[in-house]
Design a protein around this nucleic acid. Structure first.
Lengths: 125, 125
DNA sequence: TGTACAATTGCAAAACTTTGCAACTGTACA
DNA sequence: TGTACAGTTGCAAAGTTTTGCAATTGTACA
């Protein structure tokens, strides 16, 4: 599947080029920035732990704070970052705000990252 | 596939817990830190652009510098970060050092991230 | 061995993130 | 309306990353 997705096209500003082996590629600048923003948000162990917790279902802020033994404002702040990138979704129910992963895509991204990391653990340089 | 990977087990230090809905989950701390480190490395637009370029095949530092119109030391530095996380691999051939994506896993991760970002572009909040 | 080109490294300055705590807002329920 | 609990926000301090440039190292080839 990776073989069939060698380049990306859209009518956004993009950079078309060709490398010296004659292979063409095109980079959509908007998609690239957006993807980087998502990866950056996933790139913090504490935030990733929250997401792994949410892999098994929605959870509210105080529950996450209790489970992970962290101060509640710290959890809330991390969720704010994840929400601003639309990685998680929030839903209020009475006094509690329940968070969940925004979609299947995100869930797959997180899972794949962690699976890769696990296969990869033995030889951390 | 995401449905079948709700939790991760290994004999590394891990945190076992259960949320109030009674769902169990386990977090492998090592894998989580490693995954976060990979995501962090992917989480920079300039580095991601390099990786997207490498999706279409290996390339040397000076070629990337020329194509992306950036100073060569900047490219080299970004590649260093990617290499330190084993996201890219380097191979010297004469005067040139050719870089390529480390494996299919990484390639898939990058592709998925960018594809998600593209579907997602319309409504950047 | 000397020259030229390719790439890496070192280092200081700037920019960005994270954190911890206190103050604030929102909701429920008496 | 007042109290209590849940969550969010603001802000300063600390920590981390990025950047730009100059110096250095590595390789080929005359």
């Amino acid at each position: 599947m990776a073989a069939s997705t060698k380049h990306f096209e859209q009518d956004e500003p993009s950079c078309e080029a060709e490398n010296h082996s004659g292979r063409a590629f095109s980079i959509n600048a908007g998609a690239c920035d957006r993807a980087a923003a998502i990866f950056r948000a996933l790139g913090d162990p504490q935030r990733l732990r929250l997401l792994m917790m949410l892999e098994s279902g929605e959870s509210c802020v105080s529950e996450m704070a209790m489970t992970l033994e962290e101060p509640l404002p710290a959890i809330s702040q991390r969720l704010r970052v994840l929400k601003s990138e639309r990685i998680v979704r929030a839903r209020r129910d009475g006094k509690h705000v329940f968070y969940s992963l925004a979609d299947e895509h995100i869930s797959r991204l997180v899972t794949n990252g962690v699976m890769h990391a696990m296969e990869d653990l033995p030889t951390k340089e």
